[in-house]
Design a protein around this nucleic acid. Structure first.
Length: 98
DNA sequence: ACTCTGACGGAAT
DNA sequence: GATTCCGCCAGAG
């Protein structure tokens, strides 16, 4: 389920954990969603980087050699502006409309 | 069975 | 905003 929902997040949009959970049928299991994502491997096709917490903040904030973290990088590549490790949900959050 | 921990959420202060 | 508290699930020890 969870993976299915995430794979449905449209380009240039982001979704929150709770949102994913709800759409997947798991109302209060936001945490489980994060759990699942943490199990994903690097070569996954899922746009996991479009998944952020309800506060618009990126999840794993681990920096790479370039001083950037993969998530922020990939997001900006899709036109999503990330400020101070945060995203304007009002502007980018996926409505679940597609 | 119990305690901790974790890519979380929401409400209250 | 920043903190604090509580709820919730699953895995490890």
């Amino acid at each position: 389920m969870i993976l299915a929902v995430i794979s449905q997040i449209p380009y240039g949009r982001v979704a929150t954990y709770g949102q994913i959970a709800k759409l997947a049928g798991l109302a209060k299991h936001a945490r489980l969603v994060g759990k699942v994502l943490s199990q994903l491997d690097e070569g996954t096709d899922l746009p996991w980087y479009r998944v952020i917490n309800a506060q618009g903040k990126l999840s794993l904030n681990k920096l790479d050699a370039k001083g950037q973290n993969t998530q922020q990088l990939r997001l900006s590549q899709e036109g999503i502006f990330v400020n101070q490790g945060k995203v304007n949900l009002k502007q980018y959050q996926w409505d679940g409309w597609s």
